[in-house]
Write a protein that binds this DNA or RNA. Structure first.
Lengths: 234, 234
DNA sequence: GTCTATATGTGGATAGAC
DNA sequence: GTCTATCCACATATAGAC
């Protein structure tokens, strides 16, 4: 089931990225040593320092690789929608799908296994280390700006502050959608799979399952987004 | 602004718990050493081992203290509602409030500062370490069972699996509601407050703000919970 | 219960040969 | 680019005096 050389990763550099990512997801970056990573990648201990300059830089590279890919795809999706809509405002459901649907579909792509990527993303969002937050902020700033504008246009009669909050809530719901290693099992009533159980979603992480999850999540998100306002006259 | 002895915490044991909790929230438990904790608590390095038996046990104690308090209050709220409703099913909004409202209100209590407790909870939910998951599972198992049953009764025509997913989504949205240290700033367009910014919510974490947040969150959650089903005939 | 001193381990990083 | 050997900082934990 695991024989380390893993998969593609022709160069040492790539092997390090791949192995580091997997180990970070499984144990967190704080609990993963460079020795763990280089052993798994069949590389030398000094390789990380040579290729990346240090552990922090490796972590940042792992995150950047995924976030950049995700966000450029998101922007592409939004671009397509907007050019197709001409000068009309998009529907909220389109925007939500471009943002969250892209995420889930990319998480289900064969490049990732199960919800690994989502777990990584979820941790990144809440990581206390500043060098992690930096990457996150850099990679997200532009995308969020674009999507916020789109949502403002799509929901002209909802106060902007309210939209921002709901966008934030949607992020949280999505974050838990697949990745919630702990809660998902508990809520669903599944048994704990022992000490170091792998990402929950990978258990049945076929494309079909992801498709169903996406449908579930989308209707929840849209329900929340379009819910009646707390107090109409703010 | 900080002079360590902190607050109540008459005994060394309590001081250790308080300081550990704060440092865990700020830097994560992996990045927090016993030296940091004992220094902050004006206690001796050996004190942690004496009072708790080791670092892991201290972490578990920190989590248990909060989770036990939160969940007993949740159960009390549900008990009150149910005994008041007699043999009638509760309204979804009542159940959601007993679960998530209790959380937010407790997070806003003077015992905690701002969203500190929510950050702790959020991290606990997604922590990869097994000794953290254990505590979480133990403390949550009973409560979740009760609330699931209540929701099943309240929404008899919604498939149970769907309810469970939506409950899970709600957990995610709530988790991000205050605690999302990173995303919140980004989504809202606030500037980063520098290297080690404190919990975002504590910036304006008055009771009034929490009340408004609770209203926002509740309407979002209920909107999502009662959203039209993805495919009526599953 | 509290403290000092210390045992023992592990981590990240680097110098320098190949 | 890769490897070995090693340095050094820092972590947890404990033994034993007070």
């Amino acid at each position: 089931m695991r024989h380390a050389t893993d998969l593609r990763s022709v160069t040492t550099r790539e092997a390090l990225l791949d192995c580091a990512e997997r180990l970070f997801v499984e144990h967190g970056h704080a609990a993963t040593s460079l020795r763990d990573i280089t052993r798994e990648a069949h590389a030398n201990l000094a390789a990380v320092n040579y290729h990346f300059g240090g552990k922090e830089a490796l972590i940042q590279a792992v995150l950047k690789r995924r976030l950049a890919s995700l966000n450029s795809e998101r922007l592409a999706a939004l671009d397509a929608l907007e050019s197709q809509a001409g000068d009309q405002a998009l529907k909220p459901s389109q925007i939500v799908d471009a943002f969250f649907g892209t995420l889930l579909r990319q998480a289900a792509s064969p490049t990732n296994e199960g919800g690994r990527f989502l777990t990584l993303l979820e941790r990144t969002m809440t990581d206390p280390a500043s060098f992690v937050r930096t990457v996150f902020a850099d990679e997200y700033a532009g995308v969020l700006e674009r999507f916020k504008r789109a949502l403002f246009r799509a929901l002209p009669d909802v106060p902007r502050e309210e939209i921002l909050w709901r966008f934030h809530f949607m992020l949280g719901a999505t974050s838990f959608a697949i990745a919630g290693s702990n809660t998902l099992r508990l809520v669903m009533g599944w048994e704990d799979l022992g000490q170091d159980a792998p990402s929950t979603a990978s258990q049945h992480g076929t494309t079909v399952e992801t498709e169903r999850l996406l449908e579930r999540l989308m209707s929840f998100l849209l329900g929340g987004l379009r819910a009646p306002l707390p107090q109409p006259a703010a």
